[in-house]
Simulated scan of single mutants.
Amino acid sequence: MSRFVFFVFTLFATLFSQWALAVPVSSTSSSSNSTSPVLEKRVDHHGRGTWFEVGLGNCGKWSVDSDKIVAIAKSRYDENNGANCGQWVSITDQKNGRHAYALILDSCQSCGRQDLDMSPSLFKQFEPLSIGELNIEWNFMPKGWHP
């Protein structure tokens, strides 16, 4: 009898544990021909948004001030060996609610872990350059995604 109870308990535990697993979602990337599912986990970061004069970024690409790019904290860049290069982020200005997407092409030595340094044209989508600093909320978009 105890084996039967153990079997039933194990069966139900296995079935219920499946509901707690991450659910695959389809990739919406138009740059990827892959239809395999990806797991998506969104983490919102709250930090400081500043701007910088762009050029040759740490990701090895040249940019100009009119490009919509960001530099992530050097500590974050180093932690994953630059794996976020070419990944898009979603940014929202906490003061006015304005939103934009930007491409990671550089790292920022003076940025805190939750901060982003923005190209001038990207920063201007939120506020004039004379403001200098914004309170932002941002998150990584899934790898391969682009607007």
Score class of each variant (00 low, 15 high):
Val8Trp: 14
Phe9Thr: 13
Phe9Met: 13
Thr10His: 11
Thr10Pro: 05
Thr10Trp: 12
Thr10Tyr: 13
Phe12Arg: 04
Phe12Asn: 08
Ala13Pro: 05
Thr14Asn: 14
Thr14Cys: 15
Leu15Tyr: 07
Leu15His: 04
Phe16Glu: 08
Phe16Asn: 08
Ser17Cys: 14
Ser17Val: 07
Gln18Lys: 11
Gln18Val: 11
Gln18Tyr: 12
Trp19Arg: 15
Ala20Trp: 05
Ala20His: 05
Ala20Tyr: 05
Leu21Val: 12
Leu21Trp: 12
Leu21Tyr: 13
Ala22Gln: 15
Ala22Val: 12
Ala22Lys: 14
Val23Gln: 12
Val23Ala: 10
Val23Ile: 13
Val23Thr: 14
Pro24Gln: 10
Pro24Thr: 11
Val25Pro: 01
Val25Tyr: 04
Val25Asp: 05
Ser26Val: 05
Ser26His: 07
Ser26Pro: 03
Ser26Glu: 11
Ser27Trp: 00
Ser27Phe: 00
Thr28Ala: 04
Thr28Leu: 05
Ser29Asn: 06
Ser29Gln: 03
Ser29Ala: 10
Ser30Leu: 02
Ser30Thr: 01
Ser31Phe: 05
Ser31Tyr: 05
Ser32Ile: 08
Asn33Cys: 11
Asn33Gly: 15
Asn33Asp: 12
Asn33Trp: 09
Ser34His: 05
Ser34Trp: 03
Thr35Ala: 09
Ser36Thr: 05
Ser36Gln: 04
Ser36Pro: 00
Ser36Ile: 01
Pro37Asn: 00
Pro37His: 01
Val38Cys: 02
Val38Ser: 01
Leu39Arg: 06
Glu40Gly: 00
Glu40Cys: 03
Lys41His: 09
Lys41Cys: 06
Arg42Thr: 13
Val43Pro: 06
Val43Trp: 12
Val43Tyr: 13
Val43Gln: 15
Asp44Thr: 12
Asp44Lys: 10
Asp44Tyr: 12
His45Gly: 10
His45Phe: 15
His45Ile: 10
His46Thr: 12
His46Arg: 14
His46Met: 11
His46Phe: 15
His46Ile: 13
Gly47Arg: 05
Arg48Asp: 05
Gly49Phe: 07
Gly49Cys: 11
Gly49His: 07
Gly49Ala: 13
Thr50Cys: 04
Thr50Pro: 01
Thr50Lys: 01
Trp51Val: 01
Trp51Thr: 00
Phe52Gln: 04
Phe52Thr: 02
Phe52His: 09
Phe52Ala: 06
Glu53Gly: 02
Gly55Ile: 07
Gly55Thr: 08
Leu56Arg: 15
Leu56Asn: 14
Gly57Tyr: 06
Gly57Cys: 11
Gly57Glu: 10
Gly57Trp: 06
Cys59Ile: 03
Gly60Cys: 05
Gly60His: 03
Lys61Gln: 11
Lys61Glu: 10
Lys61Gly: 02
Trp62Gln: 11
Trp62Lys: 09
Trp62Asp: 08
Ser63Lys: 02
Ser63Gln: 08
Ser63Pro: 03
Val64Tyr: 03
Val64Gln: 07
Val64Asn: 04
Val64Pro: 00
Val64Ser: 06
Asp65Trp: 01
Ser66Glu: 02
Ser66Arg: 02
Ser66His: 00
Ser66Pro: 01
